[in-house]
Amino acid sequence: MPCIIALCEQSDGTPKKVAGEVASECLRQGRAAGLPVVALTIGPGAAAAAAHLAKFGIEEAAAIEGESVASYSGEAFAAALAAAIRQKDAALVVVGATSFARDLLGRLGALLSSSPATDCIALSGGSGSFKAKRPVYAGKAILSVALTGRPALASLRPNVFAATKVAGKSTRVETIAPAAPPAKCGRLVHRVAAGGGKVELSEAEVVVSGGRGLKTPENFRKLVEPLAAALGAAVGASRAVVDAGWRPHSEQVGQTGRTVAPKLYIACGISGAIQHLAGMRTARTIVAINKDKEAPIFKVADYGIVGDVDEVLPILTEQAKALKGAR
């Protein structure tokens, strides 16, 4: 029977944050299209992770566990997922637009003969033909596409779709064996945690970013990092300071870096070049702190403070801490 598949990324039995957003959006699409929703998980802990999806209202899940997916290989994972998706006769497959999807969705598209729409910010359907809206030109334009492939494939930009908790549901989890991997596979040989447990940029609800206005890398560390810590925020950076070697590329927000859509984006000493604006303009609320009142960042910011970051950020950090502490 046709269905919608919520492909839910998980790690050792715990669904990733974006999996809740994917599950909830699939249930909304399922109601509109009159199709049942099946969550699909893969890898060690897949079945345990699938059971956790009950809290989003998932009642049916398939978990792929077995030797060929016991450690990560893009080729083996894609082969196993494609076989499961075919077997379930999915009309639509949805996944979160994280590095998991960056590695797997294109492969699934080739295996299932369907072009995926990546990093979508809206999905619609209803009668079984699905449409997606996705940012192109780094968010300088929005493309609307009809997805006529079957299954339609889409990845969702994290933090854009609401994850909705549903009480009183339980998930029936079917464990399935992976299809055979292709003859030639790459394999993951090593994985080192990076960022020291800091909040992950693309999933963060609050992002504090710094630019050249910080003047030195030491200032960036002294002023931006404490504010981010006080707000439980991820640290971002402009291209200028990444190119200058102050900050790692993984923190770069903008056209040749990451695109973020947090609830709150605080731009400190960032002038707001068009490439930077492209990466953060879908944030819900934008705050800019810059000493140049003509800086383009103020044109997109909801709230601005004209002032020196050296002076403003320590006070903001102190008062934000007090505010968080008081609640």
């Binding site: 072009s115 334009a141 596409v145 009809a146 006529t148 303009r281 009142k293 997109v300 601005g304 004209v306």
Partner: peptide, 22 residues
């Protein structure tokens, strides 16, 4: 199997409000 239906500019963010100085 992906047909472009339209390409639009994103909604403009309305101009900022300067809360104050310093």
């Amino acid at each position: 199997d992906q047909q472009v239906e339209s390409l639009e500019l994103p909604p403009e963010r309305k101009g900022g409000r300067i809360v104050g100085e310093g």
